[in-house]
């Protein structure tokens, strides 16, 4: 178990060396410029537009990890057989999975932190340029909480990537499965709500109803982690929601890691 941290570190380093940080820094510079300039085009809600742009960029930056880095680092590990380098060292497969997850979490964290700093800089610049009355209602805490939840959402997606990579050998398939998870995760709640609505009306097959329910429980409800709107309007957060979200994220991640380890342990690495 004490090998988890070294694996995390090596994953983190390998991820960073792929010029990720340069990319993210350039992107965050662009973000600052873009956010400051474009919000000037709007008349009233300058702050809202800025927060929208910045938080969306943070989410996008975070999503780079599951979609590009994670699959590269995990499926690539098996495809290029670099995994032998790690597993030859008396490292159990569960430590491998946990270490990889931790490494990916660190990568996600650093990217989000850089973009967060860029966001704060952008907002600071905007206060210098635009009239002060735009920023009267501005508070930092919704911004932070929403970013934290976005981070948790990306971690949930990361954990599903781990599961997909441990059940399939092909990185293409893993990408496809991750993309599907992402899309389902963002629409499942709306679809289930729509289906439940129909239930009270005319007959709808109980099969579909059950499927919809099952999908809600099986796939991660990623849309729930999206609190950008609340942050953009500086709305107060419901503490119950935040607690539920935190617990949900953590338990869902544990389930995914459990399953990933379960499958990964039973699998050949030819």
């Amino acid at each position: 178990m004490n090998s988890i941290l070294p694996i995390a570190v090596i994953t983190f380093k390998e991820g960073l060396r792929r010029r990720v940080l340069y990319g993210v820094m350039v992107a965050s510079l662009l973000l600052i410029l873009f956010a400051v300039l474009i919000s000037g085009l709007f008349m009233r809600d300058i702050l809202k537009v800025m927060v929208d742009i910045c938080l969306s960029s943070i989410s996008l930056g975070g999503l780079l990890v599951p979609f590009f880095l994670a699959i590269n680092l995990l499926a690539g590990d098996i495809e290029n057989r670099t995994i032998y380098t790690l597993l030859a060292r008396n490292i159990s497969r569960s430590s491998y999975i946990l270490g990889k997850f931790l490494g990916l979490a660190m990568l996600t964290g650093i990217i989000i932190i850089i973009l967060m700093i860029a966001t704060l800089v952008a907002i600071y610049c905007a206060t210098l340029i635009y009239p002060a009355h735009n920023f009267l209602h501005f508070t930092l805490s919704p911004l932070f909480i929403s970013t934290l939840m976005a981070f948790l959402g990306v971690l949930v997606l990361n954990s599903t990537v781990l599961l997909w990579c441990s059940v399939t050998t092909s990185s293409f398939l893993a990408t496809l499965l991750t993309l599907s998870t992402y899309i389902i995760g963002h629409s499942v709640e709306d679809v289930v709500r729509f289906m439940n609505l129909k239930n009270t009306g005319v007959e709808i097959s109980p099969m579909i109803q059950a499927t919809a329910k099952a999908v809600l429980y099986i796939f991660p409800n990623l849309a729930a982690f999206d609190l950008k709107q609340q942050a953009a309007y500086s709305l107060p957060f419901v503490s119950q929601e935040i607690t539920l979200l935190g617990l949900y994220g953590l338990s869902y991640i544990s389930i995914m890691l459990f399953l990933a380890i379960f499958f990964f342990k039973r699998r050949d690495l030819p």
Binding site: K13, T82, T85
Partner: peptide, 29 residues
């Protein structure tokens, strides 16, 4: 597997890391 050294057929190390970092990893584990 406490005291085994394994050399794979097509030894693939992490292309973006240095040999020193690999060795450090081995020691830390």
């Amino acid at each position: 597997h406490q005291s085994i050294g394994y050399l794979p057929e097509h030894p693939s190390l992490y292309p973006h890391l240095s040999i020193k970092e690999h060795l450090q990893f081995g020691c830390r584990v």
